[in-house]
């Protein structure tokens, strides 16, 4: 029994049952398939999180984001500027207690270099209903090249707990033709 020492003192010399051996081999090969699937997707897939990131001082990040917003501001919603930067450009999104700033208007099918950083605590960038989820740290500028596929209004929900106003922290990305 499993609660007693093995009967045979040389238990490591006992043969392994065939059915067990087959399963060990199948399970091992399946592990390899899953491992190489991730590498394959880096070569052939279109959805790979970039590992491009920079150390950044929150104040200078904020300055960059505000300059961009001022230059391309087209309107305002709930006190937050709506910004339409040129396609293909670097755009800077601020996460802070408890707001995503500004609101971006992006063109469908065009790629943007989306920078995300927090000015205070950690936050979670959760783009709905697309369901893209990224972690946002203070002091790290995280850069993703993102290409909106469909037009419409998308919401950024915060999905990293960030204190008592966490559930009020929403933002928007508008995708137009």
């Amino acid at each position: 029994m499993a609660i007693q020492p093995p009967e045979s003192r040389l238990w490591w010399k006992e043969p392994v049952a065939k059915v067990e051996l087959i399963w060990v081999i199948v399970a091992f090969l399946w592990g390899l398939v899953m491992f190489f699937m991730m590498i394959y997707w880096h070569a052939a897939g279109k959805q790979n999180i970039s590992s491009e990131a920079y150390r950044v001082d929150p104040a200078s990040y904020q300055k960059k984001a505000e300059e961009l917003a001022e230059k391309y501001k087209t309107g305002e919603r709930a006190g937050i500027p709506i910004v339409k930067p040129p396609a293909g450009s670097d755009i800077y999104l601020i996460a802070r207690l408890w707001q995503w700033w500004p609101i971006f208007e992006l063109e469908k099918g065009k790629a943007y270099r989306l920078h995300i950083s927090s000015l205070d605590w950690q936050h979670g960038f959760s783009l709905q209903p697309v369901n893209i989820n990224l972690q946002v740290h203070p002091g790290y500028d995280f850069v993703q090249t993102i290409t909106p596929k469909d037009k419409g209004e998308y919401t950024i929900v915060c999905n990293e707990y960030c204190g008592i106003g966490h559930h009020q922290m929403t933002g928007k990305i508008m995708v137009v033709d």
Partner: peptide, 15 residues
């Protein structure tokens, strides 16, 4: 989202 009090976003500026 996990760890989230209100999936209605009743108090959020942008709903």
């Amino acid at each position: 989202a996990r760890r989230h009090w209100d999936m209605n976003f009743a108090d959020a500026a942008l709903t």
